[in-house]
């Protein structure tokens, strides 16, 4: 499974609207579309840390790192490459 698919599955498991009613692309801002709630950000942080064995620092806690599938994947890739 690609990282894009992995992140998409995680988002779909945490939607506040239901996945048989909505579609979203890798570039769609899931927060602005209202597909996830603010609690999701914290859950996503925990998920990324545990799943990709990394730590998210305070200055990385930027909504632009987490608002689209592409941005999340790019962020994780940059962290894991750096490590």
């Amino acid at each position: 499974m690609s990282m894009h698919e992995q992140i998409r599955n995680f988002i779909q498991d945490n939607l506040v609207v239901f996945d048989d009613e909505v579609e979203f692309s890798n570039e769609d801002n899931i927060f602005e579309l209202g597909f996830v709630n603010s609690l999701f950000a914290m859950k996503l942080v925990t998920y990324i840390e545990s799943e990709f064995n990394t730590t998210i620092e305070s200055d990385e806690m930027d909504i632009n790192n987490f608002n689209t599938i592409d941005n999340i994947v790019n962020f994780i890739s940059s962290k894991t490459v750096y490590q």
Partner: peptide
């Protein structure tokens, strides 16, 4: 505390948890 704009989604939610 934290980045600008992350006061609720980040800081408040973490604190409330």
């Amino acid at each position: 505390v934290g980045k600008e704009g992350m006061g609720f989604a980040g800081i408040a939610n973490f604190a409330l948890d």
